[in-house]
């Protein structure tokens, strides 16, 4: 008796489970149909990471004579697109030069907050330290501004101008001299004559 009864119970349980499972399956299918496709798919299988490759970039630092900018070659992982690549290059620039003959063009304590593209302009938003920690002087200010502008425009295809922002705001100058209210094109005119041609490293 117990045998037959427990078998019946077992079967009932099995059926119940099977029905629940099937119902769940059907519900799931229904849900899939009613939901717009693709969106979930994109969540489950994200866009494969872009083709990131280590590339050689030229970074411009202050020379030992405050007469112009000098280049150093570095390897940076690039390929994610303008703004992300620009941010990677600037982070490398912030680290400062490797050569003992060159000087950092970005004052200590500066961080890049964000970077985005607007047409052929790369907008770089820095922390306030770019102003407050700047030692001043026209020579130093020119080196800071154009180490950023010349480095970015030379290494990023399609970027011809750079707009520097301080904590999201457009700013008149970094240290009271050079006009950075509008996007800047690369410039070597302010350097002494020997730098006028594209400097070689």
């Amino acid at each position: 008796m117990t045998k037959g009864r427990s078998l019946k119970i077992a079967l009932a349980v099995l059926w119940a489970v099977a029905v629940m499972v099937l119902a769940g399956f059907a519900f799931k299918l229904l849900k899939e149909f009613s939901h717009p496709p693709g969106r979930r798919a994109s969540v489950q299988a994200p866009v494969p990471p872009p083709d990131m490759k280590e590339r050689a970039v030229k970074l411009y630092f202050m020379d030992e004579d405050a007469a112009g900018l000098v280049a150093e070659k570095r390897s940076v992982d690039l390929g994610a697109g303008g703004a992300v690549d620009g941010a990677a290059i600037i982070s490398e620039l912030i680290k400062g030069p490797e050569s003992g003959d060159h000087f950092a063009s970005i004052p200590p304590g500066v961080r890049l907050l964000s970077a985005y593209e607007l047409g052929d302009t790369l907008i770089l938003d820095f922390t306030r330290e770019l102003q407050t920690n700047h030692p001043g002087g026209s020579a130093g200010e020119l080196a800071t501004v154009y180490s950023i502008v010349n480095t970015v425009t030379e290494n990023l295809r399609g970027i011809n101008k750079v707009q520097i922002l301080i904590e999201g705001e457009e700013t008149e100058t970094l240290a009271g001299h050079i006009d950075i209210r509008r996007p800047l094109s690369p410039d070597t005119k302010w350097m002494t004559a020997r730098f006028h041609e594209k400097p070689e490293d």
């Binding site: 405050a66 000087f103 026209s138 020579a139 130093g140």
Partner: peptide, 10 residues
């Protein structure tokens, strides 16, 4: 103005 540079020799 007066100028300034990180290197004290400039």
């Amino acid at each position: 103005h007066t100028n300034s540079h990180v290197s004290p020799s400039v």
